[in-house]
């Protein structure tokens, strides 16, 4: 995974609560056996006027011009602003894959669903939560200033807007480190191989029926 670096990006406001993973990437695209190729189908049912199927070239499909990501300059957005419980629904990691491939590096919401939140960090996306009031303030700001930008500084855990206003955000240390260092979780866990083996031997003594086949 790539390291997460400070960047400045356009904030796209998507004003809905409870946006679920079926909306982020509809199930027909989950038939892919690959990890990439999901970007053009992000929010497929909202983004296009026709019905999307895997394998169809999206560049010729009719766009829903009213959808925020089809409006200038949000095609270039790298920060998504939304309401509470973003990413609820299934465990599909295709959702963060699609968001990342579109270009989103940071998501801002009042809250995120647990599995989705966790999946973001495995894919270099930083999800940030703010209180209802701040989210409301940001939505108003986005409405007034089309294409307003934030600089996302993970190291210092701050967002800075173009006028220099600073918004601090909270994040657990291990999640921050994982993004900053682009760590390989499996490699990290395997460095504790001996501890796993010791645990396993003991576990077998305690619950031998789990080790019969």
């Amino acid at each position: 995974m790539e390291k997460f670096c400070t960047f400045t990006g356009i904030v796209a406001p998507l004003d809905r609560a409870n946006i679920d993973t079926d909306a982020i990437i509809p199930k027909q695209f989950l038939k892919s056996i690959h990890r990439s190729g999901f970007g053009p189908n992000l929010f497929d049912e909202w983004r296009y006027l026709d019905h999307g199927e895997p394998g169809i070239d999206c560049s010729n499909r009719p766009l829903n011009q009213g959808f925020i990501l089809n409006k200038d300059p949000y095609q270039q957005a790298s920060i998504l602003l939304t309401r509470e419980n973003f990413g609820c629904g299934s465990s599909r990691e295709h959702a963060p894959w699609a968001l990342a491939e579109f270009g989103f590096k940071t998501l801002i919401a009042e809250s995120f669903a647990d599995i989705f939140y966790n999946n973001c960090f495995k894919n270099g996306i930083l999800p940030i939560t703010f209180s209802k009031d701040i989210i409301q303030f940001l939505f108003e700001k986005a409405e007034e200033n089309t294409g307003f930008t934030f600089t996302v500084n993970l190291e210092d855990q701050i967002l800075i807007d173009s006028s220099g206003n600073v918004f601090e955000f909270k994040l657990e240390v291990y999640r921050k480190n994982a993004l900053l260092n682009g760590l390989d979780d499996i490699g990290l866990t395997l460095s504790h191989e001996n501890e796993i083996i010791v645990f396993e031997k003991n576990h077998q003594i305690m619950q031998p029926w789990l080790f019969t086949s």
Partner: peptide, 9 residues
């Protein structure tokens, strides 16, 4: 439930 990266893990 877990994501695909965790399945591999």
């Amino acid at each position: 439930g877990i994501g695909t990266s965790e399945v591999e893990h």
